[in-house]
Simulated assay, not measured.
Amino acid sequence: MLIADTGRGMAAESRDGETKKDIAVMAFGVVGYLAHRHGDVVGLVCGDRNGTRSIPAKAGEPHLERLLREVDSSTSLDSGPSRIEDQLEYVARNVKGRFLLFVVSDEHAAGPDTEQLLRRLRAQHEVLWLTIRDADLAGEGNTGQDAFSVADSSMLPAHLAASPAVAAAYAKATGERDAARQAMLRRAGITQGHMTGSSAVMTELFALLERHRRAG
């Protein structure tokens, strides 16, 4: 079961400058193709804060292509705010049986409610989590252009992003958020990985699957 964040957060740029949804579609395509070759069925749960929808699990490459088109067409700057908890809650309430859940989201912040929900899902399903890294807007990642948040349209002027003090605060906040998310996923028993661009999809996904296999 592919679990996709199709909120506007995934329409933003990734660390490597690509749109995060393009990286997500590629990752879903690889995992879905591997499942297809293994004889498994593949379904989709996707959405944003405004709603969640699902496409039942079926076999076949045409079905997988339909799922990928749904993720691609549903993710734009006009989408609702990202809220992957809503899609996870939908799975917890509605998906029966045991699935391998492949979750793709951006740099989600950890929280006790999210961790409780993940533990609930992990009791029934196997879970793989892939984080698409956000663009690095300060310090070395600064491109010399003004940037804005797709979540709330707040602006980060280029001259502030180039400031060493701003860059240090930005790096500190990012590091703390990453550490909290990774710790949350470890405590929930979820195999996790991250990537910055499409060039790393194959390498990172196979590493993720190997870590999951070793974890038992």
Rank of each mutant, 00 (worst) to 15 (best):
K21R: 14
A158S: 13
A179R: 14
L121K: 01
A183Q: 15
R122K: 15
P157E: 05
L208S: 07
G43R: 07
R69T: 11
P62K: 04
G111P: 09
D78I: 03
A161N: 01
R120E: 15
E210T: 11
S198H: 05
D48Q: 00
M184V: 05
E115V: 02
V91S: 02
V41M: 02
Y33N: 13
G139D: 10
A138D: 08
S54H: 13
A162Y: 07
E140W: 05
T75V: 04
R213H: 11
L68T: 00
T203Y: 11
T114C: 14
I23H: 06
G39A: 07
A151T: 11
V30Q: 12
S105C: 15
A11V: 02
N142M: 05
I55E: 06
S163V: 07
Y33Q: 12
A147F: 02
L2V: 03
L117K: 08
A215N: 12
N50E: 14
K58H: 14
H125Q: 05
K58V: 00
K172N: 12
L117Q: 02
R37A: 11
A183T: 15
R213D: 05
E13L: 15
D178T: 10
G111S: 15
R15N: 05
F102Q: 04
L100C: 12
G193N: 00
V41S: 13
D78T: 06
A109R: 14
G141Q: 04
T174R: 12
H63Q: 13
A215F: 09
G139M: 12
R49T: 00
G17H: 04
A188D: 04
E176I: 10
R66T: 14
R181W: 01
L118K: 08
A57E: 09
A11D: 10
G139W: 08
D136E: 15
T6A: 03
K96A: 14
V41E: 13
E204M: 10
P164S: 06
T6Y: 01
N94E: 13
S74Q: 00
S154M: 06
E65I: 07
T174A: 13
T131H: 01
R120F: 05
S163D: 14
G189S: 11
G197Q: 07
M202G: 06
R214C: 00
T143W: 00
F28Y: 15
E210A: 14
R93L: 09
D86Q: 09
H212T: 06
V42Q: 06
V42R: 00
N94M: 09
K172Q: 15
V91T: 03
I55M: 10
F102H: 01
N94V: 04
L64A: 08
N50H: 13
E210D: 14
M184E: 08
M26W: 05
K172Y: 07
R69I: 05
T191C: 09
G39D: 11
E85S: 14
V201C: 13
